[in-house]
Design a protein around this nucleic acid. Structure first.
Lengths: 222, 222
DNA sequence: TTTATTTTTTAGATTTGTCTAAATTTTATT
DNA sequence: AATAAAATTTAGACAAATCTAAAAAATAAA
C-alpha cells in the first residue's frame, strides 16, 4: 500500500499545524505564504482536507485541524525531526543543511521504518535545532533541548548533557560548579566573542567561552 | 531544487534498464507488465522520456536507454540498494521486507545524502540480496555476493565472508577446509533438508547443513 | 499471401494539484 | 453607515500521469 496522504496534503497539514500552534486559528493567506503558493490553491486543498475529515473549516471563517488532522501532522513532524537527527548525528551533516533533505524524507510512509529509526537513534527527545520529537503515539515532552549558545536569555534551564566528554572540559565545568542537573540561566551574551554570563542560584555570576557553551546542553519547558 | 525527474519517470527508467539487461531490447508490453500498468500508459511515457533524451525510441520498433538514461537508472539502483543495505544492517529489517520501503527511499533526490550514506555503511559492494551496488560514478563490480544457499549450481565462487563469527562454525569450516578465499562450487542441493554438497578442487565432495550454508558468503563474477 | 492475432499507438477522458482572473465576503476607514 | 481595501472563494484552465476504447502496425497462421 502506498502513502495514506499525498506529499502535498501532508505539507498542508504540517503548515496548518505549525500556524495554529502560533496563532490558535489559521487563515488562507497565512498558509499560502507559508507554503509559497496561491490563496486559491489553499482554498482548493482546504476543501479536500475537510472532505477527508482532517480539518474544521467553514468558508470565509478561519479553520483548524481536528483531532485526526493533528494526529497526522504530528507523525509527519516526528518523521521530519528524526530524519534530521539521523542526518546530523549519523551522517555528519551540519544542522543548517538538513532541513531540505528532511522535507523529502518525512513523506516516506512506513511506520515500522520510522519506529526502527527512532530506536536506532536511541529515542532522541529533541532534533538538532532543539525542537521536541513526538513519540510514536504523537506525544511529546514539552522540554526543549539546546546548547547554551541557543538558550534564550533569562530562561531557567537544567543541564542535561555535555557534548565533548574530555577530562579538560569536565574539570573546567566542575570548577564553575556546573554539572548534570544544575539549574541555571543566561544573563548576558557578549557579541564580541560569543562568551556568555551565567547565573546559578546562590552563586555569583560566571562567564564561559563560546567553545564551552557549545558543549553544554540544557533542557527547559516552554 | 526538487528532484530532476518524477518518481514515475524514475520507475520507468529503472524498469527499462532491468529489462534490457535481460533481453537486450525492450517492448511496451514488457514494461507494462513489469510496472503493473497499461501499454497505453507506457507509450505515453516513452514519448516523454524520448523528448527528455533519455531513450532511443522509434514507434512500433523496440526501445532502449541511451547513455544518459542508463546513467540515471544506475543512480536509482544505487540508491535503492544502499537503502536496502541500511535497512537490513542498521535497522535490523529482514532482507525480505525491505524492498517496498526502498522503492520509496530511492526517489529521495539529494546526491550528498546518498554519498554520505554510502560512506556511513562502509561502501558496501552488494545489497542484502547479493546484487551489486553501483558506486557514485555508476560503475559496479561485476561480482555478486550471496550465501551458499543462493549460489547457483555449478557456479565457481570464492568464499568472501562468514556470517556467524562463533568459534563453533569456524571449527567446523576449518575441518572441512573452507576458509576465506577458498574456491568452490555447489554440486547438489537436497530439497529434503536444504543441505548442500560442495566441491573444492582436488578434494572429495563435502556436505554442509542449511544452517552452515546460510552463514557462508561467497562472491562470483557474472 | 491473405487472414487472423497480437502488439502498439492514438484519441479522448479522468484525477490531482496547481494557476489566473473575476466575483464574493469580510474587515477597515472615513 | 457607506465606501474602500483586503481576504477569500469560485470559475475555468493547464500539466502530469493515468485510463478505456478504437485504430493502426507488426507478426503469426492458415
Amino acid at each position: 500500500m502506498g502513502p495514506k496522504y499525498s506529499s502535498s496534503r501532508e505539507n498542508y497539514l504540517k503548515a496548518i499545524f505549525h500556524l495554529q500552534e502560533i496563532h490558535g486559528t489559521v487563515t488562507t493567506n497565512d498558509v499560502a505564504n507559508e507554503l509559497q503558493t496561491r490563496p486559491a490553491s489553499v482554498t482548493d486543498m482546504l476543501k479536500k482536507l475537510k472532505a477527508q475529515k482532517l480539518l474544521l473549516y467553514e468558508k470565509y471563517k478561519g479553520f483548524k485541524l481536528n483531532t485526526e488532522g493533528r494526529k497526522v501532522a504530528l507523525q509527519i513532524i516526528r518523521k521530519h525531526r528524526l530524519w534530521e537527527y539521523f542526518l546530523v548525528e549519523k551522517l555528519r551533516f551540519g544542522w543548517d543543511e538538513v532541513h531540505e533533505i528532511a522535507e523529502e524524507l518525512e513523506h516516506i510512509s512506513s511506520k515500522k521504518l520510522i519506529d526502527r529509526l527512532d530506536e536506532f537513534l536511541g529515542f532522541p527527545k529533541s532534533d538538532p535545532h532543539g525542537d521536541p520529537i513526538p513519540d510514536s503515539q504523537g506525544r511529546w515532552t514539552l522540554t526543549r533541548q539546546v546548547d547554551l549558545l541557543n538558550l534564550p536569555i533569562n530562561q531557567m534551564a537544567e543541564v542535561s548533557g555535555i557534548g565533548d566528554q574530555s577530562a579538560e572540559i569536565l574539570e573546567l565545568l566542575n570548577h564553575k560548579h556546573i554539572a548534570l542537573g544544575t539549574r541555571l540561566e543566561v544573563k548576558k551574551k557578549f557579541a564580541f566573542d560569543n562568551s556568555i554570563e551565567l547565573k546559578i542560584k546562590n552563586q555569583s555570576p560566571v562567564t564561559i567561552s563560546e567553545h564551552v557553551a557549545k558543549n553544554v546542553f540544557v533542557k527547559y519547558d516552554e
